[in-house]
């Protein structure tokens, strides 16, 4: 196994006094698709937000491309090639589709390539090109997810974390978005899929981590993990 692009060791995150993530340890090998699954309330989102620099961790260590990035704020991590597509897409609702995408190329290294990036995103999601002058508030849920994904791609990240990308979307749209994610991965970007919908995530990902109540309780190659084993870890039986 190659050196992991992202290494998380004993990461802990709190909301005030409330311990949200107790201790999370996981590796993400470079160039792969990795899934992090867990039931509602397993603190998957909190873990992702802590890795991506939106929350400060209270203990533990995060290493990205060999560099210690523990506690580094989100705006600096984007420059280093780590992007998060947050839960619920979080588009800038008062801005047009294209302005949302251009915001994605805000980091200095991405600005020179903005035209090329836009073409790439529009080719990946042709519907966005049609609607590029509309405000994102007028889009459907699936289209907003596409904007959020495209916006993250505009920064040419090495690693993208997708937080519950399929939440609330119709199966056909999920299927389409997953196909695009595989394309993105085929282009060399490492992908982390955080999902409640376990089957599709496990099928797509080479490696799977299962979270339960703020801890990573099971890790391994998706193919080698037994269904029974995953179920036990998922529900804490």
């Amino acid at each position: 196994m190659s050196e992991p692009i992202l290494k998380v060791e004993g990461l802990q995150a709190k909301y005030g006094d409330f311990l949200a993530v107790e201790s999370a340890t996981l590796d993400v090998p470079a160039g792969k698709i990795v899934s992090v699954i867990g039931a509602n309330g397993a603190r998957k989102s909190t873990l992702m937000e802590t890795i991506a620099g939106i929350h400060k961790p209270s203990a533990g260590k995060v290493t990205f491309k060999g560099e210690d990035i523990t506690g580094m704020p989100a705006e600096k991590l984007v420059l280093r090639g780590l992007s998060l597509v947050p839960q619920g897409s979080r588009c800038f609702v008062r801005m047009s589709v294209e302005d949302n995408l251009i915001m994605g190329s805000y980091p200095k290294h991405a600005r020179a390539r903005v035209k090329e990036s836009l073409d790439f995103v529009y080719q990946l999601f042709p519907v966005l090109k049609e609607k590029r002058h509309q405000p994102t508030s007028s889009l459907s849920g699936g289209q907003r997810q596409m904007v959020a994904i495209g916006r993250a791609l505009m920064a040419w990240p090495d690693l993208i974390l997708f937080d519950e990308i399929s939440l609330g979307l119709a199966p056909a749209i999920i299927k389409d978005i997953y196909a695009r994610i595989r394309e993105i991965n085929a282009g060399g970007t490492t992908v982390v899929l955080v999902e409640q919908d376990t089957n599709r995530a496990i099928r797509t990902a080479e490696y799977t981590h299962v979270m339960l109540k703020g801890r990573v309780v099971l890790s391994g190659r998706s193919k080698e993990l037994g269904e029974e084993e995953i179920k036990k870890a998922y529900f804490g039986l």
Binding site: A52, G53, I54, P73, A74, E75, V78, L79, S83, L84, P86, R90, C91, F92, V93, R94, M95, D99, I102, M103, G104, Y106, P107, R151, A152, A155
Partner: peptide, 20 residues
């Protein structure tokens, strides 16, 4: 754009590399 994005959603703006 960064100013407008920040006024919409500070956390999402910081994910774009904007220092709030």
């Amino acid at each position: 754009r960064a100013i407008r994005a920040t006024s919409d959603d500070t956390a999402a703006a910081s994910l774009m590399g904007v220092s709030v």
